[in-house]
């Protein structure tokens, strides 16, 4: 009987010990970066590079969206919030902001679609539901499937802020990330969508806007209109790991990584 009790006690202790070691496993400093799903892949890549160069520090990247980025920076749930909005909301005014990159928004259609160029007016009318057929903008006689993002998305609010006067047609298919918009457009010959410049691939084709393609040169010259900044937000002046991670992103190596992966550096 006594041995049984002993065994049980030991087992219990073992569990506790396990839980404790599990609980405070790693040393070193840790930060969480949360927000914009558009910038998330780039942040992941940058964090991997940073951690490879600085073993012992841990940077966790979470998505959630720009609004979550702002909220979690405000509440302290994340050390750094990421937001890619043309206009930051009122809540965010108390936060310290750094622009770490810029991002072009690209209008995309299916590769089978003959349309290669749209004007801002045409885009507005398509998203307002006034243009319903591709032949009205020089395409084939097919109904347009409008694909947009959900309310609250940073990409959508930037898109609507730049194009202006959009009341999204109720017919629009709604997807909840850049990747899903891209997949939907890749699967549907008659659809149009908009995604982050860095995520363009060969399954879809990017449209020119007013005859200008989304290239770094034209963005830097200010010719391409659909551009938004990527903000890193912190509650106070960044310190410690937060600061050195931001410094790393703004460094030549960080900006180069951003460039080679399809975003536009700030410098």
């Amino acid at each position: 009987m006594k041995t049984k009790v002993m065994i049980r006690c030991l087992f219990f202790l073992l569990c506790v010990a396990l839980a404790v070691t599990f609980g405070c496993g790693r040393g070193g400093s840790t930060i969480t970066v949360a927000g914009s799903t558009a910038f998330q892949p780039f942040a992941e890549k940058l964090a991997d590079l940073y951690m490879a160069a600085n073993p012992g520090s841990t940077i966790t990247i979470q998505g959630g969206g720009s609004a979550v980025g702002i909220q979690s920076a405000l509440s302290g749930a994340a050390n750094i919030g990421m937001a890619d909005l043309v206009i930051l909301p009122k809540d965010a005014q108390s936060l310290k902001t750094v622009i770490v990159a810029r991002d072009g928004i690209v209008m995309i259609v299916n590769p089978k679609n003959p349309v290669k160029n749209l004007t801002l007016d045409q885009i507005r009318n398509i998203y307002n539901g006034k243009i319903k057929n591709w032949k009205e903008v020089g395409g084939s006689d097919q109904a347009v499937t409008v694909v947009s993002r959900e309310e609250g998305s940073g990409t959508r609010s930037s898109f609507e802020a730049i194009i202006k006067n959009i009341t999204l047609t109720k017919e629009a298919i709604i997807q909840d990330s850049n990747g899903t918009v891209r997949e939907t457009v890749a699967n549907d010959h008659n659809s149009i969508g908009y995604i982050s410049h860095g995520l363009v691939n060969n399954k879809i084709s990017a449209l020119m806007l007013n005859g200008i393609a989304c290239t770094n040169d034209d963005i830097n010259k200010g010719l391409y209109p659909l551009v938004r900044p990527v903000y890193f937000l912190t509650r106070e002046e960044p310190q410690g790991l937060s600061k050195s991670f931001i410094d790393f992103i703004l460094s030549e190596q960080g900006q180069k990584t951003i460039l080679t992966n399809g975003l536009i550096p700030v410098k």
Partner: peptide, 21 residues
């Protein structure tokens, strides 16, 4: 036609929603 059921409405926008939304 496309539609949006209640569950989709929640999961679609939950990640981005704050305040009243």
């Amino acid at each position: 036609d496309s539609a949006r059921p209640l569950t989709a409405n929640i999961a679609l926008e939950m990640g981005y929603a704050t305040g009243m939304h």
